[in-house]
Nucleic acid binder design. Structure first.
Lengths: 129, 129
DNA sequence: TTGATTGTACTATTTAGTTAATACAATAAT
DNA sequence: ATTATTGTATTAACTAAATAGTACAATCAA
């Protein structure tokens, strides 16, 4: 799967976000071992230092932990994972609503547009994942 | 009004976005004269060069145009403005839906969460504009 | 024991974004 | 005519992010 990193935001920040989503969405399971820093760096076409920085920062969230010489693992604390998943979802919706209000869309107009886009997505496969 | 620029993304990109939203949301009217580069730079606490870069790039969208020595103006082409407003809205909703799918939220779950957040916003004034 | 792999650490270099400080030509106001 | 303001251009310096290259100690498999 492609990493789709752009240069608009710091790469390490995009990596953090990506792995975070991979964890809370169940792509990785609790207790899973992550590929090594070097492997992930290669996979993402990124310098190992950048990947290292991203992963070590990600540890602050509690989603992953590292064992000095055996590797890096997904937390087994499922409630932590669930909690962050909820947070991310709320964040997304909140940000969208904020922007739509900025654009002068009412709740109803927003819902109408959402419905339309969901329909399109269903038939045209516009939305990935 | 504060510019709320952060250091995560390039400042000039945030400025472009900000002015774009100010135009399509009607804060500026078609034909309006923008404050000068220097004024805006001061207002945003940013170097004039950064503001100049942002505004000159924004011209590519057709939302503003500059007259060499008289100033920079909002386009009078209201259909262009409307079109970009629709695009921005669609972009927002699409991105949100994509992320929510990534998180494993169904359309119904997403709508439920939206409703809840809209309620909160109504009573708690959580969402600025 | 040997060799490969692990996370981690360190230094140097490059690049993009930002700031700083000017400068200039064209316009508008006085 | 003079002055201030406009967008624009240019050069230098600074910073953060990213890359490149190397190194080390701890673990595990052979």
């Amino acid at each position: 799967m492609a990493w789709n990193l752009d240069s608009q935001r710091p790469i390490y920040a995009q990596i953090i976000e990506r792995v975070q989503y991979d964890i809370v969405s169940g792509h990785y399971n609790p207790g899973d071992k992550l590929p090594s820093v070097r492997e992930l760096a290669c996979e993402a076409s990124v310098n190992p230092n950048t990947m290292q920085k991203a992963l070590s920062e990600l540890e602050q969230s509690g989603l992953v932990y590292s064992q000095r010489t055996t590797g890096r693992f997904i937390t087994k604390d499922t409630s932590c994972i669930r909690k962050i998943r909820e947070e991310l979802a709320k964040q997304q919706v909140l940000e969208m609503i904020r922007r739509m209000k900025q654009l002068g869309f009412t709740k109803e107009e927003t819902l109408t547009l959402m419905d339309k886009i969901y329909e399109e997505a269903t038939y045209e496969h516009t939305i990935g994942v």
